[in-house]
């Protein structure tokens, strides 16, 4: 009897193990995007309404009545404008970072290790933006004072700086640096072998501009201008509302680098330009 129970139970057990092994959720970073339009006319909101097209809710249009900015300075002692008045945008400025941590694992001498982060900027309504980066300092030992310094790339004619990327291909060139690929990046990142060291807040150095554009805008005037027709047959080629780039962090250590855990904080700042 015992043997029969055991024999019946074994397949059930194996089934559980099979389910456990093969039906786990994969680990992934979530991308949040929308390809729909959201157009707002904004000032300082006093009143207004939200209009949505009745076909498939593709377009949302919000308007506001009144404008505090129009009130006379003389009577109030102030005027205020929010958003880019020339494009009437109050669509939020959004910045996205794919991860908060780049784990280099265990570093081996003269074996460069890399890690990546994806940066996304979405303005939606209008204008221009800048993304800067600066490190709190070089890679520093968590329990100690040793550091992995900033890279100078290959050195010689290929000596990079915080504003000028140069080639870093030599395995005997050590340090920490970053490269950029994607949209709106600085032109000195010619290809993925070009790196810069991070600006160092301890020096202190000004953060370096890594993404910049005056062209992140929703297509408020689609090209060509459509004649009136109900949405969603509004023709035209909308321009990107989201711009994206990838930053590749690279580190390489020498054989005399003291063992230990090293860490630093990389600070990204995304702002609509003024």
């Amino acid at each position: 009897m015992k043997k029969i129970c055991f024999q019946r139970f074994t397949p059930v057990f194996l089934l559980f193990v099979f389910l456990y092994l093969f039906f786990l959720y994969p680990a992934q970073a979530v991308n949040m995007e929308s390809d729909q339009y959201r157009i707002q006319f904004g000032t300082i909101d006093i009143g207004g309404q939200k209009m949505t097209d009745t076909v498939n809710n593709t377009y949302t249009l919000t308007t506001s009545l009144g404008q505090a900015a129009a009130k006379e300075f003389a009577s109030n002692g102030f005027t205020i404008k929010a958003g880019f008045q020339y494009v009437y945008s109050r669509i939020p400025f959004t910045f996205s970072l794919s991860n908060t941590k780049v784990d280099f694992g265990t570093l081996l001498p003269s074996s460069p290790t890399t890690g990546q982060l994806t940066l996304k900027v979405s303005f939606g309504g209008a204008g221009q933006y800048i993304v800067t980066v600066r490190a709190d300092g070089p890679f520093k030992q968590v329990l100690g004072s040793n550091i992995i310094p900033a890279t100078s790339c290959n050195g010689g004619v290929d000596t990079c700086s915080i504003t000028l990327a140069k080639q870093w291909t030599s395995t005997s060139a050590y340090g920490l640096g970053y490269s950029m690929t994607g949209q709106d990046i600085a032109t000195d990142f010619i290809d993925s072998t070009y790196f810069r060291p991070f600006a160092n807040a301890l020096v202190p150095e000004n953060p370096a501009v890594i993404m910049q554009s005056v062209n992140v805008t929703a297509n408020l005037t689609p090209t060509p201008n459509p004649s009136y027709s109900p949405a969603p047959s509004l023709a035209g080629t909308p321009r990107d509302t989201t711009h994206q780039s990838v930053i590749t962090l690279k580190t390489n250590i020498s054989s005399v680098q003291p063992a230990g855990s090293y860490a630093t904080v990389i600070r990204f700042l995304a702002t609509p330009s003024f």
Binding site: A27, Q28, A29, T79, A82, G83, R90, F93, N99
Partner: peptide, 20 residues
């Protein structure tokens, strides 16, 4: 599900200009 920690922050208004 095990997810990489992602940051997505929005800020509105994107710019403010005032005379006081």
């Amino acid at each position: 599900p095990c997810l990489a920690q992602q940051i997505t922050l929005s800020l509105d208004p994107p710019i403010v200009q005032t005379h006081i």
